[in-house]
């Protein structure tokens, strides 16, 4: 995989996260970001998947106490 493709994937994941954290109607933290949860389409565009552990923040909150450590291997 060449560097332009790599960069495209990295910035795509960052855009997805930015959308989750800031730009969407809901404020969402994913909590399980890892390589196996990043899927790649025909053109190698990255797509974040698996929202099973994700949390929604209410109102103006920018932090949540998630207490427990989560994640899947």
């Amino acid at each position: 995989m060449d560097w332009s493709k790599r960069f495209q994937i990295i910035s795509g994941i960052a855009k997805g996260l930015l959308y989750l954290h800031h730009d969407s109607r809901l404020r969402i933290i994913h909590r399980d970001i890892k390589a196996s949860n990043i899927l790649l389409d025909n053109n190698m565009n990255p797509k974040i998947s698996d929202f099973g552990l994700a949390r929604m923040l209410v109102g103006d909150h920018t932090k949540a106490n998630t207490k427990r450590v989560v994640g899947t291997q």
Binding site: G16, D23, L26, L39, P46, K47, G52, M56
Partner: peptide
């Protein structure tokens, strides 16, 4: 798994972005 299922349905149904799986 049932909790995760519900969570995923509620969250992802409200989201749409080219870098999120549809």
């Amino acid at each position: 798994g049932l909790d995760e299922f519900r969570n995923e349905v509620v969250l992802i149904a409200n989201l749409q972005h080219r870098n999120l799986v549809k």
